[in-house]
Amino acid sequence: MDERIALLRRTISDLMEQATAASGAATEESLAARLDDLQQRLNTLLKERESLGGKAG
């Protein structure tokens, strides 16, 4: 689970860099939607890990 969390965090970071460099409304909307999806998945994994007694954050 920790590996999945780390992967999601890296992917979010990479997409944030792409969003900074992106131009065009369609591209920005697409990246924003992808970032939102990844953040929701990360939040779900963090809650699951916490409920299993794992470390928070």
Rank of each mutant, 00 (worst) to 15 (best):
E29T: 05
L45P: 00
E3A: 12
L52W: 06
G24R: 00
S30K: 09
E48Y: 02
D36M: 11
Q40C: 04
Q40V: 06
D2M: 12
L7K: 01
T27E: 15
E29W: 10
D14F: 08
R4W: 08
R4K: 15
R34L: 11
L42R: 03
R9I: 08
T20R: 12
M1K: 02
K55P: 07
K55H: 10
L45D: 04
L42W: 01
R41C: 03
I5G: 09
T44R: 11
E48H: 03
E50A: 15
I12C: 07
D14Y: 04
E3P: 01
R10L: 12
A21H: 08
D36K: 02
K47Q: 12
G53F: 03
R9Q: 14
L38T: 01
E28Q: 15
T11C: 07
S23V: 14
L8T: 00
A6L: 13
A56D: 11
S51I: 10
R41E: 03
S13H: 09
M16K: 05
G57D: 14
R49I: 01
L38Y: 03
L31K: 03
T20V: 12
G53L: 11
A25Y: 14
L52P: 02
A56Y: 12
A56I: 14
L7G: 08
A22V: 09
A6V: 11
M1T: 03
K47L: 15
G54D: 02
T44G: 09
D37P: 02
